[in-house]
Write a protein that binds this DNA or RNA. Structure first.
Lengths: 195, 195
DNA sequence: ATTTCCCTAACGAACGTTTGTTTATTATAT
DNA sequence: ATATAATAAACAAACGTTCGTTAGGGAAAT
């Protein structure tokens, strides 16, 4: 099982790197650091990966794809704006909690990507935020949401969720669904027009 | 004016370092980097500062003090919980926007502090969060706020604000007061019991 | 008024260490 | 026998920091 061993090793490298990048940051994590945690020499890492940055790229774009895919699926459904927002937040939280270490790296370490990856990354993120903004604007047009600064509100909403990886523990008392419900409860009931 | 010149230079170093730490991160910013932006040699920095980490310590604990001071002042006043929360958020945003670069460093780079500074820092932050949590608990007891997970809500609230330094521009259309109002509007009207 | 002295801020050079990565070689497993 | 994965050794570059020195200005002493 040559390929299997190699894939496992590569996966192991990326997983351990994810942990270290989260705890110490990308720049403060050395390849010797990473290697010693795995139990091999730094030079041996290069049998499986091309460079340190390739690891970061893998982590960032894997997460970016996951987020995008989960949101695109929701856009297909025909839902009222508030339902759509609930679903979008729930999906976002689920993706995020599935690998909270990778999410933390995704949110904090992307700036160490070199061009053209940095440009691609930022454009994807912008795109993602715009989809949320559109949901809020639609909600306003439908008469479901108050008048507001949609971009500001989305940034506040996503920020409150995205900070989670720094304190979320899978063994904690709150499930991803409960977290999503808590967040949307606060935000939606503050946005929704009460009759 | 010996002392004045020296103070200005030291201040200049810390200000430029704050900018670079925000943009590139603490670990990815070298002393030669910093020096060249100022227009001197790296070695010359050490006529004014003791070490690279001392700069980070200065930034972090200056901000920590500012946040603490602004909150302690509010605790003295006799206010209803929702009013108190509004005031606390407003103070928080004002401190944060006064130097958003330093705030960004404060929120993202504290993990590079060494002991015992790291321990002190985390204990201060915990303390600060607990003051917010207490406001929410008081609000619940007063019958002003819904039943909720106070810690979770505070983390969500502070996170949505603390992410701001990454996009806040002083020349933007929103003033600190308007930002605070937007945030509290969303959160308070989502929390407050409607009669 | 001139000299001596001290202090600050800057410098170039170098310190020892660590960085990411490459190479040539050996061990392992199929 | 062949392909893969690990190694030790080495690389140039960069790291934070220290060194001895120098230039310049103000204070003190002559």
């Amino acid at each position: 099982m040559i390929t299997k061993t190699k894939l496992n090793r590569k996966q192991q490298i990326i997983e351990k790197a994810t942990q270290l990048f989260q705890k110490q940051g990308y720049a403060a994590t050395s390849m010797r650091d990473l290697a010693s945690y795995i139990g091999i020499e730094a030079a041996s890492l290069y049998s499986h990966i091309k460079s340190k940055e390739e690891i970061l790229q893998t982590i960032c774009f894997q997460m970016a794809n996951d987020f995008f895919q989960s949101l695109e699926q929701i856009e297909l459904e025909k839902l009222s704006a508030d339902e759509k927002l609930k679903r979008a937040v729930k999906s976002h939280v689920i993706v995020l909690t599935k690998d909270s270490a990778a999410s933390a790296v995704f949110f904090s370490e992307w700036r160490h990507l070199s061009e053209p990856y940095l440009k691609d990354f930022l454009s994807m993120r912008n795109n993602y935020e715009n989809k949320f903004i559109q949901i809020l604007i639609d909600g306003y047009k439908e008469g479901v949401f108050k008048k507001m600064d949609a971009k500001f509100t989305v940034l506040a909403l996503l920020s409150s969720i995205n900070w989670m990886p720094s304190w979320y523990k899978p063994e904690g008392k709150l499930s991803p669904e409960e977290i999503a419900k808590n967040v949307t409860d606060v935000f939606i009931n503050g946005l929704k027009i009460r009759s």
